[in-house]
Amino acid sequence: MLVGYMRVSKVDGSQTTDLQRDALLAVGTDPESLYEDKASGKKEDRPQLAACLKALRHGDTLVVWKLDRLGRDLRHLVNVVHDLTERGIGLKVLTGQGAAIDTTTASGKLVFGIFAALAEFERELISERTIAGLAAARARGRNGGRPYKMTPAKLRLAMASMGRPETKVSDLCTELGITRQTLYRHVSPTGELRPEGEGLLARSYRPRSV
């Protein structure tokens, strides 16, 4: 089954999803399986996206008009598609720069593989900048402040950084503002998610109760 997701950024009525809806219906998306958010693509907490991802089943395909309707953050996009792939769910982009993406086909998987490689490269750059920034801060006698709880964004950075030979756990914890115990409750030394980390990411996609 084809399940559609639509999004506009403004909530003042100046933007509509009519064009997206028409395009999704034209390719055979089930009219009863259309989800719509009015929120910035940079926000991961989008109730209808969470509901859409939860409703998808093995063998379904998530259809979006443009890739930026799903999100504007490359790492978030890669994580979403990775989760869908693990569940046996495809992604199809109808137009725009991501129109070649259709993870139900071999060529589409190859294109998204390139996106994933770029996201990994971006994570490595962030990790390198984090290490360099910590070294510069220590040289000036500055240390981290009060520890805060783990968040989805911090967790993804921890996953990218852990397991890299040059990453020092103490430095990473200082940069993220968490304790070593908090880090290891969510991520293994090799960067793999632990149950508490999986739960945190799962909750980040869960729709809020009204």
Rank of each mutant, 00 (worst) to 15 (best):
M1P: 02
M1K: 11
L2D: 03
V3L: 03
G4E: 08
Y5S: 01
V8R: 02
S9R: 06
D12H: 04
G13Y: 12
Q15R: 03
D18S: 05
L19E: 09
L19A: 12
L19P: 00
Q20D: 06
A23T: 01
A23Q: 10
L24F: 00
L24K: 00
L25E: 09
V27L: 01
G28L: 05
D30H: 05
S33A: 13
S33T: 03
Y35D: 07
D37R: 04
D37W: 13
K38N: 09
E44P: 00
D45P: 00
P47T: 11
P47V: 05
Q48E: 13
L53G: 02
K54F: 06
L56S: 10
L56I: 10
R57E: 15
H58V: 07
H58S: 14
G59S: 07
V63P: 00
V63Y: 11
D73A: 04
L74R: 10
H76D: 15
H76S: 11
H76M: 08
H76K: 12
V78N: 01
V78H: 07
N79P: 00
N79V: 01
V80F: 05
H82G: 06
H82Q: 15
D83R: 09
T85F: 02
T85K: 15
E86Y: 08
R87F: 11
K92P: 00
V93Y: 11
A99V: 01
A99C: 05
A100V: 03
T105G: 07
S107C: 04
S107L: 12
S107D: 09
S107F: 14
K109T: 10
K109C: 01
V111R: 06
V111Y: 14
V111M: 14
V111A: 13
F112M: 09
F112W: 14
I114R: 03
A116K: 03
L118R: 11
E120G: 05
E120S: 10
R123F: 12
E124R: 15
E124T: 14
E124M: 07
E124A: 04
I126F: 13
E128C: 03
T130Y: 07
I131E: 14
I131S: 14
I131P: 02
G133P: 03
R138D: 05
A139R: 15
R140P: 00
R140Y: 06
G141I: 13
R142F: 07
N143F: 15
R146V: 08
P147F: 14
Y148W: 14
K149M: 02
L157G: 01
L157P: 00
S161E: 14
S161N: 07
E166W: 10
K168L: 10
K168E: 13
V169Q: 11
S170H: 15
L172R: 06
L172H: 10
L172Q: 11
L172A: 09
C173R: 07
T179S: 15
T179V: 06
T179G: 10
R180I: 01
T182C: 06
Y184S: 04
H186E: 04
S188M: 07
P189G: 04
P189W: 13
G191Y: 06
G191S: 01
G191R: 05
E192Q: 07
E192D: 09
E192I: 01
R194I: 05
P195H: 08
E196C: 00
G197V: 01
E198I: 00
E198A: 03
G199H: 08
L200T: 05
L200S: 10
L200Q: 12
L201T: 02
R203Q: 07
R206M: 02
P207A: 10
R208H: 12
R208I: 06
S209E: 15
